[in-house]
Amino acid sequence: MITEGSLFFFSIALFCIGVFGVLVRRNLLFILISIEIMLNAVAVLFVAASSIHNNSDGQIMYLLILTLAASEVAVGLGLVIQMYRRSKTLDVDQLSSMKG
């Protein structure tokens, strides 16, 4: 049987891998991918809670996370394409024109 502790461990580890990705990558596309990993870590925790408490509320929250992820990816990738059109690179450090 799956223990609660191992699920918490898995979820936290996955979330920290996502945080590591956001911190370490400078490519906008990879930052979006890392955010997806973090969202998945939280989704695992919600579904696990739904299973632990034996009610479906956690899975409703999972559905909402799924909706959020889809909208976030649509807008984020729109921004990626727009950024590539304007500066021909995806390096986020190049976005410094608003620097004071």
Binding site: M1, I2, T3, E4, G5, L7, F8, F9, S51, I52
Partner: peptide, 11 residues
């Protein structure tokens, strides 16, 4: 809640 909880999750 605890990470070392060995309570199993029933299917």
């Amino acid at each position: 809640v605890s990470v070392i909880s060995t309570k199993t999750i029933g299917v």
